[in-house]
């Protein structure tokens, strides 16, 4: 067959940088590791379920091994005794990785202002998006996910961002 010498039609060519193409691919295939400890889990299930359907955003496959996950959802109260476990799981995740603090408890300790509770997971691991609410509505969760996707597109993972800032 003869090679078609016709110039491509208008709008049929896309020009992009490799970085933003990768970021685009990443933000729509987030494999998640739910670190679920308390009552916020109910709202997380609701956000995952058919009604709100997080799968629409490409974040549908839960991975029960942190090594296969891109995003860790810390859902619920984290006690001081759990802190080493959470940090270890975070360290086991491969780059690039993102952290969501789901609910007031994970973000700040919430009303558990006492000896037992870690006052916010950002004391031990870096957090990308904090979701307020006790528990947050599924809409808020989806909003946070979209916010995270925008950030992935704009700046890559938190670790890459930190490296860039250091350089």
């Amino acid at each position: 067959m003869a090679v078609d010498k016709k110039p491509p039609e208008e709008g049929s060519i896309l020009v992009t940088s490799i970085e933003s193409a990768i970021a685009w691919a990443r933000k729509f295939s987030l494999f998640q590791y739910p670190f679920v400890t308390a009552c916020c889990a109910m709202e997380f299930m609701s956000a995952m379920g058919p009604m709100y359907d997080m799968a629409r955003f490409g974040a549908e496959a839960p991975r029960w091994s942190p090594r296969q996950a891109d995003i860790i959802w810390v859902v619920g109260t984290v006690t001081n005794r759990q802190a080493p476990i959470l940090r270890r799981i975070y360290n086991q995740m491969g780059e690039p990785k993102w952290v969501m603090a789901f609910g007031t408890c994970a973000s700040t300790g919430g009303f558990y202002d006492n000896y037992a509770t870690l006052q916010g997971i950002d004391k031990i691991i870096p957090v990308d998006v904090y979701i307020p609410g006790c528990p947050p509505r599924p809409e808020q969760v989806l909003d946070a996910l979209m916010l995270l996707q925008d950030r992935i597109q704009a700046e890559g993972s938190s670790r890459m961002r930190a490296l860039k800032e250091m350089a």
Binding site: N80, A83, L118
Partner: peptide
């Protein structure tokens, strides 16, 4: 009442407040 103990050290670079909420890019 305000005494906190944790089995692992906190991140050294932890700011006291969470970072300000950023505008969407």
């Amino acid at each position: 009442k305000k005494r906190r103990q944790c089995p692992i050290p906190f991140r050294e670079d932890h700011p006291d407040q969470p970072p300000p909420f950023r505008e969407r890019p």
